[in-house]
């Protein structure tokens, strides 16, 4: 049985297969509309989420399956003090696959260790959000046609932004990706990501505080929100939250074929006037996330609809050494 804890547990070849499957689902949705008949997805969300939970539910419903679950810790037995491991043992008897979001880092891994069904990490605190990274990769591949030899600007909260850390870790495995890291001094990329991920893998990068200077170089601009919940000090949050605001004036500095991405929700960092610019692709990105989640659910459940579309196995090889995906 295979779980999904980190996008890095997929080899580059497996990621290609997963994205190929997502593309086929996107092109031929009818072919997959009964693939999960009789299967149930449990969504165990211990903290609020709009897109991720509904995206998972939409993915399962589009595959013909059903969903059940809870949307906050208050409406689950966690409010009575039940452990994550106990909850997952129980849910294993109710559903065929589970997506779990939890404010505590590592909770999905604990869940997977006690679960009888595949577990997907749907976000654990500031640690990881693998399906967001899968969605990001799939969006870039779909819209730019490749995942190698391009320049990506990552802007905003690079210190606490888990999506940024995961995306960098996933992209360094492709050749010729140049990173432009745009952030204030206080929210710079942590040194362990710079040294252990970028430098260790020979990736090229530059750091700047100026979004304007970076814009002309970029094939992809990945904006992030400064997240209030990651700060212990409210004053720091207030001071930094509006440091970067992407508006039409700044968009004029960008290339015509650049795309703008954002994991959403956005607050002020992308002005609504940018939404009408054809380069603004963050809503497309959210839509594409459903297809990659459909591909992931099929893969983890070991369901192959079309033998001509290769997909990763749900039994990870011993070479990869793990039960994780």
């Amino acid at each position: 049985m295979r779980h999904c804890m980190s996008p890095l547990d997929f080899s580059v070849d497996e990621l290609d297969q997963l994205m190929g499957l997502a593309a086929d689902i996107e092109e031929n949705p009818d072919k997959y509309s009964h693939a999960c008949d009789g299967k149930r997805l449990a969504t165990c969300f211990y903290e609020p989420s709009t897109r991720t939970r509904l995206s998972f539910e939409s993915a399962m419903l589009r595959l013909g399956g059903q969903t059940l679950g809870f949307a906050s810790a208050d409406s689950s037995s966690a409010s009575k003090g039940e452990s994550v491991s106990d909850t997952l043992r129980i849910i294993s008897g109710y559903a065929d696959i589970c997506a779990i979001r939890h404010p505590k880092e590592g909770a999905p891994l604990v869940a997977s260790l006690h679960s009888g069904i595949p577990v997907i990490n749907a976000g654990d605190g500031g640690h990881a959000h693998p399906t967001q990274t899968l969605a990001d990769l799939y969006t870039i591949k779909s819209l730019k046609g490749r995942l190698d030899h391009f320049t990506i600007g990552l802007c905003g909260d690079l210190k606490f932004g888990r999506t940024v850390h995961s995306l960098i870790s996933a992209l360094v495995r492709y050749e010729g990706v140049h990173f432009v890291l745009i952030s204030p001094e206080e929210l710079k990329l942590p040194s362990y990501i710079r040294e252990d991920v970028l430098e260790k893998n020979g990736a090229t990068y530059e750091e700047t505080e100026s979004l304007e200077d970076a814009m002309p170089k970029l094939d992809v601009l990945y904006m992030t929100r400064v997240q209030r919940e990651r700060f212990f000090n409210e004053d720091d949050y207030v001071r930094l939250k509006d440091r970067y605001i992407l508006d039409n004036d700044k968009m004029k500095l960008g290339r015509e074929d650049m795309i703008v991405m954002h994991p959403l929700p956005r607050v002020n960092e992308i002005s609504v006037e940018v939404d009408d610019d054809p380069r603004a692709q963050y809503f497309t990105q959210a839509k594409k996330a459903v297809f990659i989640r459909m591909a992931l659910i099929l893969t983890l459940l070991g369901i192959q609809v079309d033998k001509n579309i290769p997909q990763p196995t749900n039994n990870p090889s011993s070479e990869k050494g793990g039960e994780k995906c």
């Binding site: 452990s83 491991s85 505590k104 880092e105 891994l109 605190g125 640690h127």
Partner: peptide
């Protein structure tokens, strides 16, 4: 020592 780690709340881990 990470206060956000699951080990801070999950018993018996």
């Amino acid at each position: 020592k990470n206060p956000r780690c699951i080990t801070s709340i999950e018993q018996g881990l």
